[in-house]
Amino acid sequence: MFYWSYHIIFMKAEMKMKPIGFGIVGCGFFGGEFARLLQEMEGARVAAVQGGSGKSARAVAEEIGCGFEERLEDLVRRDDVDAIVVASPNHLHREPVLLAARHGKHVFCEKPVALSNEDCRDMTEACRSAGVRFMAGHILHFFDGIERVKRWIREGVIGRPIAIHSERTGWEEPKPDVSWKKNERESGGHLFHHIHELELMLALMGAPAELYMAGDNVAHRGPGFGDEDDVLLLTLRFANGGFGTLQTGSGFRWGEHYMKINGTEGAIRIDFRRSAVELRKPGERTVSFGLHDEPLDNEERIRIYEVMDGGVIYGDPQKRPPAFLQTAMRREMRCFLDAIGGKPIEDDKRALFDGTGALLSIATASAAMSSRRSGVPQQVPIVPDR
């Protein structure tokens, strides 16, 4: 522990004199964009990228003018790499996080952090023991409208939250090539791969005491499809006495993407399709504003939803993310960069760094999938306060 403490102090002193060097693991839709954003960010520099097949990673390395490493071990051993961004497929997060921690590198890990409680605990504990920063990549916390919603709830604007409901549903047609994102062993299925809404529900309502989930693959079997469930219906009873429901999957011809939070004194609706947030309170005028601060970001988001079915969408590694995602990703990387540099972490972002956000969301998703398989309600393992 003394060695790691000395190592981190030495790293911080060096970082004040030179940009923080980043290594990127996985250069698909998000990983490639993180590399581009960091290369342009003050105080940061991408030293090298690494990718399994090498095609996307090599292309990104050539585009932004950084190094390329074929082997993960070579990336984490580089002296010019201070931090690792893990954006590989969901089932390939554990090894790079553990290797990065072992070599004293700070870690940002894309959602879902892991596909099992054991892996998530091992990853967070490895970073804690090594004395390095570990940040979970839950991007919704960097949408301007959602930050305001969280502040309203903390300040009691809608009273005590008592019921929350979220839908992220749509319909998918068969694909000529079945991506890893459609196979449950690699992606975790819809609940894990689209864990954003579940994680936000937990951030707003607290830990669940018990849950039950029903689901199946009812309409997407055979060629052109993976093996994940296409209809998932989750009910939660929170420890604070509130309740929640969530619907997700690709088996819904009437697609939706929204969240409603009902409190004892008011209600909030987050409409992802219309890129809008609304606050309603008895006897008061409805408050409404964009999900993003930039009007063009809201307009772009609305246009995208006009040509897609509901909230089921997957990024194309051959294309750059839309501007509204780039804005949030840039803020996300700035938050990570500042934390590495020793700046205070904002209160509403602490759960992204102390392990509780990652551990609670993975524990809840794991319990939900266990309930889906067993057909009986499940309790969620207690996540200790950090």
Rank of each mutant, 00 (worst) to 15 (best):
219 A>F: 10
219 A>W: 04
221 R>Y: 09
221 R>L: 13
222 G>N: 08
223 P>G: 09
223 P>C: 08
224 G>M: 03
224 G>K: 04
225 F>K: 07
225 F>I: 07
229 D>K: 04
229 D>Q: 01
230 D>A: 11
231 V>E: 03
231 V>K: 08
231 V>I: 09
231 V>G: 02
232 L>E: 09
232 L>N: 09
232 L>R: 00
234 L>N: 03
234 L>F: 10
235 T>P: 00
236 L>G: 00
236 L>H: 03
236 L>E: 03
237 R>M: 07
237 R>C: 07
237 R>F: 12
237 R>I: 02
238 F>P: 07
239 A>M: 05
239 A>F: 04
240 N>I: 02
240 N>W: 01
240 N>H: 09
242 G>N: 05
242 G>Y: 01
242 G>I: 04
242 G>L: 00
243 F>G: 14
245 T>W: 00
245 T>K: 07
245 T>H: 04
246 L>P: 06
247 Q>C: 12
247 Q>L: 15
248 T>S: 15
248 T>Q: 14
248 T>L: 14
248 T>Y: 00
249 G>T: 10
250 S>Y: 03
250 S>V: 09
250 S>L: 10
251 G>W: 04
252 F>N: 00
252 F>S: 02
254 W>E: 13
254 W>R: 12
256 E>K: 14
256 E>S: 11
257 H>T: 09
257 H>D: 00
257 H>Y: 14
257 H>A: 11
260 K>F: 06
260 K>Q: 14
260 K>N: 14
261 I>H: 06
261 I>T: 09
261 I>G: 02
261 I>L: 13
262 N>Y: 12
262 N>S: 12
263 G>R: 04
264 T>F: 10
264 T>L: 09
265 E>N: 05
266 G>C: 00
266 G>N: 02
268 I>S: 00
268 I>G: 06
268 I>R: 06
268 I>E: 09
268 I>H: 05
271 D>F: 04
273 R>G: 08
274 R>C: 11
274 R>Q: 15
274 R>F: 07
275 S>N: 12
275 S>A: 11
276 A>R: 14
276 A>S: 14
277 V>Y: 04
277 V>H: 04
278 E>I: 00
278 E>L: 12
278 E>M: 10
279 L>R: 05
279 L>D: 07
282 P>T: 15
283 G>F: 09
284 E>N: 07
284 E>K: 13
284 E>V: 06
285 R>E: 10
286 T>L: 09
287 V>A: 12
287 V>C: 13
288 S>M: 11
288 S>T: 13
289 F>I: 13
289 F>H: 10
290 G>Y: 02
290 G>N: 02
291 L>E: 13
291 L>G: 13
292 H>W: 07
293 D>R: 15
293 D>L: 06
293 D>T: 12
294 E>Y: 10
295 P>R: 08
296 L>N: 09
298 N>I: 05
299 E>H: 01
300 E>C: 10
300 E>K: 02
302 I>L: 01
302 I>T: 03
302 I>F: 00
302 I>R: 01
303 R>E: 13
303 R>F: 06
304 I>C: 01
304 I>H: 08
304 I>F: 00
304 I>V: 02
306 E>V: 05
306 E>D: 15
306 E>Q: 15
307 V>K: 03
308 M>W: 08
310 G>P: 10
310 G>D: 06
311 G>M: 03
312 V>T: 00
312 V>N: 01
312 V>H: 01
313 I>F: 07
314 Y>C: 01
316 D>F: 08
317 P>N: 12
318 Q>M: 14
